[in-house]
Simulated scan of single mutants.
Amino acid sequence: MGTNRAVFESVAYSARCQDCGGQAQWWGVQVLDGGRLRWDTECSCPVCGSGMAVCGGELPAGLRSRMLAEHGPARLRVGASAPNAVVMRVLRAVLGVGLGEVRDVLSGVLAGTHSGTLPEMELLARRLRAAGIDAAAGRPSLP
């Protein structure tokens, strides 16, 4: 994926309308744009006709799980010759994890099992490439 190209995944869901309390239709999108992850939502209420858009914020855990279930997890892959210390430094900076936790994440990355949403994995891949590491994000191919 290109370095500056936006990467996104979306999910639709129902939730209470903030104006009338009816069931509103919501759409949320996680976007990697400009080197940052962003969660944007918008809604439309068929009961009262109100609509709203909220830009920015964190992807709620329940909707992240749903997005992963609907789209499937993306995986981060690094080149076999990637220096572990550099990969760990980038992972710690991006994920905000400690030394003990980053070792577990590194293990998953090297085994090809570390996964998340496509925008999350692409953010890691871009940061690793900026540090000189051969890295890619994507979904496993179907057999």
Rank of each mutant, 00 (worst) to 15 (best):
M1W: 06
N4G: 14
N4F: 12
A6H: 14
A6R: 15
F8T: 09
S10Q: 15
S10A: 12
V11L: 15
V11E: 05
V11N: 06
S14W: 10
A15I: 04
R16I: 09
R16E: 14
C17I: 10
D19V: 09
D19S: 13
G21C: 05
Q23N: 13
A24G: 09
Q25K: 13
W26R: 14
W27E: 12
G28I: 05
V29L: 05
V29K: 04
L32G: 10
D33Q: 15
G34L: 04
L37D: 08
R38Q: 11
R38P: 02
W39Q: 08
W39F: 10
E42Y: 10
E42K: 15
C43Y: 14
C43N: 12
C43V: 02
S44C: 07
P46G: 08
P46Y: 05
V47D: 15
V47R: 14
V47I: 09
C48M: 11
S50I: 10
S50P: 05
G51A: 13
G51R: 15
A53Q: 14
V54L: 14
G57M: 05
G57R: 00
L59I: 00
L59C: 15
P60G: 10
P60A: 11
A61K: 09
L63F: 03
R64V: 01
H71F: 03
G72P: 09
G72D: 09
G72N: 09
P73T: 01
A74I: 14
R75T: 00
R77P: 00
R77S: 05
G79T: 13
A82T: 03
P83S: 04
N84R: 08
V86E: 01
V86T: 10
V86W: 01
V86P: 00
V86K: 06
V86Y: 00
V87M: 03
V87S: 02
A93T: 07
V94Q: 06
L95K: 13
L95E: 11
V97T: 03
G98D: 08
L99E: 11
G100D: 12
E101Q: 11
V102F: 01
R103C: 00
D104V: 13
D104S: 10
D104T: 09
V105D: 00
V105C: 02
L106I: 04
V109Q: 11
L110P: 02
L110S: 08
A111M: 04
T113V: 08
T113R: 00
T113C: 04
T113I: 06
H114K: 14
H114R: 14
G116D: 11
G116C: 12
T117C: 03
L118E: 08
P119F: 08
E120I: 03
E120D: 06
M121H: 02
E122I: 01
E122C: 02
L128Y: 01
L128E: 03
A131S: 09
A131E: 00
I133Q: 03
G138S: 08
R139S: 05
P140E: 13
P140L: 07
P140T: 08
S141K: 06
